[in-house]
Each structure stands twice: as structure tokens, then as C-alpha cells.
């Protein structure tokens, strides 16, 4: 009973938040609705018993990706007139995308009516580990059977990171950086000295 209630609550909120993401006029509101959608999707994952994935969804998407989204969108100077002009110019493209998505949904529904494909039938290698929690089971699979895929995914992320750094890094001249090690190594006797200059003459610095 309570599972059904929770499922419909999370599912309805996910869909509503998704709708508001594309319907709200203000981009910041859109990002916030997107966060609500992520959050409810995490709730759905918990209902499936995939609490590890749910926590990762919240940590990675809500905690980091959406914060950066918000960070960028917050700083946009929102001019609703240009937004509306862009809407009319981009409408054909949007319509094409909408038609493609609708066609996919219809094809999917038709395929579902024709009977499901047998995917991931549990055989000996894919059976759940007895007595292992969710995290242990994922780890056992990820670091044995799917090790190369996992490493490849890591490599792709590394390349993306290096690319981002290369694209944004620039050498600026005339910037005096702080050398903390040098500052910490500085001692009073090399920082100050006593001088007794003759009257009328300055000191050499």
C-alpha cells in the first residue's frame, strides 16, 4: 500500500517537475524544477531497492552538476523579449525534435504491445550475490566482469577533464601569483634589517 502511494507520489512529482522545467519562463526556475525532478527520480530508485544509485544521483547531479548549472544560469541577464524572439526562430527545430520524440514513444509502445525482448535473463554469472548488499554487488560486477568498460568510462572522463582544462587555461602575463612556500619560509632576520644612515641620506632598499 505505502509503496504504491510512494511510487505514484514520486512519479507524479517527477513528471510535473519535468513539465515545469520546460514550461517555466525563467531559466533559474527551470533549473530548480530540474533539481526537483532529479530528487524525485532518486526517490523512485530507492523504491526499486537501488539506494546506491539513488544516493549517487543526488550527490552527482543535484549536488554538483545542477549547482554548476545554477551558477551559470544565475548570471544570465534575462531579457524576456529576446527569449521570445529566439522561441519563434527556433520553433521549427523544436517541433522536429518533438515529432521525433513522439514517434519514438509511439514505436516503443507498439513494440511493447508486440511482446518484450528477453534482456538480461539471470544465468549463473548474473545472479544476485547471496548476502551481499547493493554496493558490494555493484562493486563485484563492476571490477570483474565490466572492468574494461569501467576503465574506458574513466578514460573518457579523464579526456573530457583534460580537454576542459586545455580550453580554459590561458597564460596571463603580468600576474603576480602568491608563492605560499616562499612566504612561509621567510624569517624575520631576512625580512628586516637595521640601518644607521647618515643624516640627510636615505637608505638603500
Amino acid at each position: 500500500m505505502i509503496q504504491v502511494l510512494a511510487f505514484y507520489l514520486f512519479a507524479a512529482l517527477t513528471i510535473a517537475a519535468g513539465a515545469f522545467t520546460i514550461l517555466s519562463r525563467n531559466p533559474v526556475h527551470s533549473v530548480l524544477w530540474l533539481i526537483v525532478a532529479f530528487f524525485n527520480a532518486a526517490g523512485l530508485m530507492v523504491l526499486c531497492g537501488a539506494e546506491f544509485i539513488a544516493m549517487l544521483l543526488v550527490i552527482v547531479y543535484v549536488g554538483a552538476v545542477a549547482v554548476l548549472f545554477l551558477f551559470v544560469v544565475m548570471m544570465l541577464d534575462i531579457d524576456f523579449a529576446t527569449l521570445r524572439a529566439g522561441f519563434i526562430r527556433n520553433m521549427p527545430l523544436g517541433l522536429v525534435l518533438a515529432v521525433v520524440l513522439l514517434a519514438e514513444v509511439l514505436i516503443g509502445l507498439g513494440a511493447l504491445g508486440a511482446g518484450g525482448i528477453k534482456l538480461g535473463t539471470p544465468d549463473g554469472s548474473a545472479a544476485p550475490l547471496a548476502g551481499a548488499s547493493n554496493i558490494e554487488a555493484i562493486g563485484a560486477l563492476l571490477y570483474s566482469k565490466y572492468l574494461f568498460l569501467f576503465e574506458a568510462a574513466g578514460l573518457v572522463l579523464l579526456v573530457a577533464m583534460v580537454g576542459a582544462i586545455v580550453l580554459t587555461h590561458r597564460q596571463r602575463s603580468g600576474v603576480r601569483g602568491q608563492n605560499v612556500a616562499k612566504q612561509n619560509a621567510r624569517r624575520p632576520d631576512e625580512a628586516t634589517f637595521n640601518a644607521s644612515p647618515e643624516v640627510g641620506k636615505g637608505v638603500q632598499l
Partner: peptide, 25 residues
């Protein structure tokens, strides 16, 4: 007493930033 307790703490603490960011904006 969930078996992802520490991840839950991380997830919740990563939400804390929204209060500040939304207030600022």
C-alpha cells in the same frame, strides 16, 4: 539504519548549498 548512511550524509550536505545560492539570487 540504512546501509548507505555515509553516502546519505554526503548527499544531504551537498544539498545545503542551495539554501545559500537561492537566497543570493
Amino acid at each position: 539504519d540504512i546501509n548507505v548512511g555515509l553516502l546519505y550524509v554526503l548527499a544531504v550536505s551537498s544539498l545545503g548549498v542551495y539554501g545559500t545560492v537561492i537566497a543570493g539570487w
